[in-house]
Every structure is written in C-alpha cells, then in structure tokens.
C-alpha cells in the first residue's frame, strides 16, 4: 500500500524506475502503478528526474505526425477493400464456382445428343443413297461379282 503523504524509499525508487519507462504523464502509466505516481509526483526527491522525463515526453510529441492523406485512403478503399470483400464473400456464392463445371456438363450432354442424332441421320442418308445408286453401279459392272 502506497502512503501518499510520505512515500517510502522503495516507493520513491519505484517511481524513478517507472519514470524512466513511461515518462512523466500519469495517463501513460499502468493503472496499477498510478498510486506510486500520485505519491511521488510532487515529491522533490526526484524533481530533476521528473523534469527530464517531462521534457523527453514533450520532445517526443514534437516529432513529425505521420498520417495518411485522403488519396491514400481512397486507394485503400477503392482498390483493396472491394476485392478482398469479394473474395471473402465467395463461399456464399457457390453457384459461381460451380458454373463452369455445370456448363461443361450441359455442353457435353448437348454434344452427345446432337452428335447421336446427326450420326443417325447420316447413316440413314447413306443407306438411301446406296440403294438409289445400286442399279447404276451394277449396270456399269462396277459392283459386279468377280467371274
């Protein structure tokens, strides 16, 4: 338990250690350690250390702030998110993935039916053509039996 009125040496040492780590802003300290801060922040023992830590916090805040501009965010949104979202949505649109296989099967079946019908008609046409030509061919002796 930290006594806020007269911090012990151990508390002061812990305060110094945490100043080195988290700096002089209370909100940056772990919640569990904030009683140490409250007990020692006004204590003069580590006033110089506290001042240095606060100065370093201030210096860090002087660094350039890097934030994305609107153009970059628009690129992220326009080029990236829709594509990823579509990919993520694929499982719900399974019929799209199955479409090529279905189309192939349908075309194969259609090809078989058309092919069969066409082949039957061709055989029939050939039969009638041969029947019609047979007398002439026989007369010319082309199909005559060998003597």
């Amino acid at each position: 338990m930290v006594d806020p009125r007269s911090p012990s040496d151990a508390t002061r040492a812990e305060f110094a250690r945490l100043l080195e780590i988290y700096g002089a802003e209370r909100r940056r300290w772990p919640a569990a350690s904030q009683p140490v801060y409250d007990a020692c922040a006004g204590d003069m023992t580590h006033a110089e250390l506290f001042h240095e830590a606060a100065a370093l916090d201030g210096a860090l805040s002087e660094a350039t702030s890097h934030r994305g501009d609107d153009a970059f965010k628009e690129r992220l949104l326009a080029d990236f998110v829709p594509r990823r979202a579509r990919e993520a949505a694929r499982p719900r649109r399974r019929w799209i993935r199955l479409a090529p296989a279905g189309a192939f099967a349908a075309l194969s079946a259609m090809g078989f039916v058309v092919g069969s019908a066409t082949a039957g008609a061709a055989d029939e046409a050939l039969y009638y053509a041969e029947a019609a030509m047979e007398p002439a061919l026989t007369a010319d002796g082309l199909w005559a039996e060998a003597p």
Binding site: G68, R86, A89
Partner: peptide
Amino acid sequence: RGDRLAASAIVLRHSDAVLG
C-alpha cells in the same frame, strides 16, 4: 462474412495508426 462496408470502416478507423 465478406461485408464490404465493415471492411471499409475498419480501414478508415485504423489506417492512420498502421501507416503512422
């Protein structure tokens, strides 16, 4: 679940932190 708007909201919310 592929929600495009949710993805957009995440990008807008956190892209500055990631880029920074």
